[in-house]
Amino acid sequence: MFKPLVVALALVLLPFAAQASNLPDYPFIHTTGEGFAMIAPDMGEIDFDITAYNADPAAAAAAVAERAAQVQALMVEGESSASLRDTRKEMRTAEADYAVRSSVHIVVRELGKWRPLMQALLALPNVDHLSTTFGRKDREKVEQELTASAVKDAQRRAEAMAAGFGKKVGAVNAISSGQLRNLTNAVGLMPGDLYYRSNRTVDAAPADKDYLAIEALRWSQTVDVIFRIK
């Protein structure tokens, strides 16, 4: 009777033992630091669909091609560029016609041209599902600066905790960083993130969104650090 009980207890305690074995075998403090900055963007991106409806699919495709040519005509070398992709045709049974749609992606490298370009796009017919986002050309440099700020923040937090117990912070034994976060997107001011939308799709934006406005970036970088306790 006792043997099965011992085996059962061992099985129950096994996960806790495994978890404890993953902890450092020395006194330590684990802290998370954050670096945050509000930054003016120096580039932007625009995503939208060109959609045409017609009982004749060839006529709908021709309308999409015409609108795409108008979009390309708005581009200026060195300042903006447009690419079209994912052209698709769909039969709408209820409407007895075809929908031909093509996704457009525009990169604006000179934000001084943002407003007139956006005004021209908004004036075009057949444009829907418009989405905009902003970023920085020197993103890696900004990310390094935010990481350095996050490390200092983690150090400050660790020292405050150690001081509360009359201890001091020792050497760093482990550190890891999270992904750069765009908090502008997190609070709903922007429909997408410039750098981490790996499979970009066109999002429906709020009806009251001001497409002519250029939003400041709110970027955050976090680090997790394990310090020894002296």
Score class of each variant (00 low, 15 high):
Arg109Pro: 01
Glu110Leu: 07
Glu110Gln: 14
Leu111Cys: 08
Gly112Gln: 07
Gly112Met: 10
Gly112Asn: 10
Lys113Asp: 13
Lys113Trp: 10
Arg115Tyr: 05
Pro116Gly: 13
Leu117Lys: 00
Leu117Met: 10
Met118Ala: 08
Gln119His: 03
Gln119Glu: 13
Gln119Trp: 04
Ala120Gly: 05
Leu121Ile: 14
Leu121Pro: 02
Leu121Met: 08
Leu122Ala: 07
Leu122Ser: 06
Leu122Asn: 03
Ala123Val: 01
Ala123Lys: 11
Ala123Phe: 02
Asp128Ile: 06
Asp128Met: 13
Asp128Thr: 13
Thr132Val: 15
Thr132Cys: 05
Thr133Gly: 11
Thr133Ser: 12
Phe134Ile: 01
Gly135Ile: 00
Gly135Asn: 03
Arg136Gly: 02
Arg136Ser: 03
Lys137Ser: 11
Asp138Ser: 11
Arg139Leu: 11
Lys141Tyr: 10
Lys141Thr: 14
Val142Asn: 02
Val142Pro: 05
Gln144Met: 09
Gln144Ser: 13
Gln144Gly: 08
Glu145Thr: 12
Glu145Phe: 04
Leu146Pro: 03
Ala148Glu: 12
Ala148His: 06
Ser149Val: 03
Ser149Trp: 03
Val151Ser: 05
Val151Tyr: 13
Val151Lys: 09
Val151Cys: 05
Lys152Gln: 08
Lys152Thr: 15
Asp153Gly: 02
Asp153Tyr: 08
Ala154Asn: 00
Gln155Phe: 02
Gln155Leu: 12
Arg156Ser: 15
Arg156Leu: 15
Arg157Val: 14
Arg157Cys: 01
Ala158Lys: 00
Ala158Asn: 00
Ala158Thr: 01
Glu159His: 04
Glu159Leu: 07
Ala160Met: 12
Ala160Gln: 15
Ala162Cys: 06
Gly166Ile: 06
Gly166Val: 03
Gly166Phe: 00
Lys167Leu: 15
Lys167Thr: 00
Lys168Asp: 08
Val169Arg: 01
Val169Glu: 04
Val169Pro: 01
Val169Leu: 09
Ala171Gln: 11
Asn173Met: 14
Asn173Ala: 10
Asn173Ile: 12
Ala174Asp: 14
Ile175Asn: 03
Ile175Ala: 14
Ser176Tyr: 09
Leu180Ala: 04
Leu180Tyr: 05
Arg181His: 09
Arg181Leu: 11
Asn182Arg: 02
Thr184Lys: 02
Thr184Gln: 06
Asn185Cys: 07
Ala186Phe: 10
Val187Met: 01
Val187Cys: 02
Gly188Ile: 05
Leu189Met: 14
Leu189Arg: 07
Pro191Cys: 10
Pro191Asp: 06
Pro191Gln: 11
Gly192Trp: 02
Gly192Asn: 15
Gly192Arg: 13
